[in-house]
């Protein structure tokens, strides 16, 4: 009797774990597939105004501007192709948010075509380079980076 109960509990636990795993995977896939936009996708096939989506791309250099209120930041997110989506965000920027590096913005498209972000996540690239390189001028750093970061297509 006791053994039977134990077996039952184990089977149920295993089933819950498997179903949970499947649901998590499906949830993640759904999130990725229909709610993640690249800038070129957002321009070609924009989501409905007000629908919660994610926008992922690169912060275009020279576009980050602090507004007069001191808390709202505007910048442009670009993708691989020649595309640009203006983004507005009011809040605390993550420490790794920088011009020229990756960003994932969670929010919604406003009627004027600006992406209103509730949350900004900084995306790191696959390169790990010590801080010393940052003190060199850009040309040197690029040279050095090319030598140390092999394998990026």
């Amino acid at each position: 009797m006791k053994a039977k109960h134990q077996r039952l509990v184990l089977v149920v636990l295993a089933l819950i774990a498997l179903v949970g795993a499947g649901l998590l995977a499906a949830y993640a896939l759904r999130n990725q597939a229909s709610y993640f936009y690249l800038p070129e996708q957002m321009q070609a096939d924009p989501p409905q105004v007000g629908q919660a989506v994610r926008l992922g791309g690169m912060v275009a250099p020279g576009t980050v501007e602090m507004q007069a209120d001191g808390i709202t930041v505007t910048f442009t997110v670009t993708g691989r192709e020649d595309s640009a989506v203006p983004v507005r965000f009011a809040g605390i920027l993550p420490d790794l948010f920088q011009e020229g590096s990756g960003v994932v913005a969670e929010g919604r498209l406003a009627a004027d075509g600006t992406f209103e972000a509730d949350k900004l996540l900084a995306k790191h690239d696959e390169n790990y380079v010590p801080r010393e390189l940052q003190d060199m001028d850009e040309h040197q750093a690029a040279e050095m980076a090319r030598e140390t970061t092999i394998g990026i297509e």
């Binding site: 001191g70 808390i71 809040g91 605390i92 920027l93 993550p94 420490d95």
Partner: peptide, 8 residues
């Protein structure tokens, strides 16, 4: 405004 977390 930055978070300025203590990384350590």
């Amino acid at each position: 405004m930055r978070e300025a977390l203590d990384q350590w």
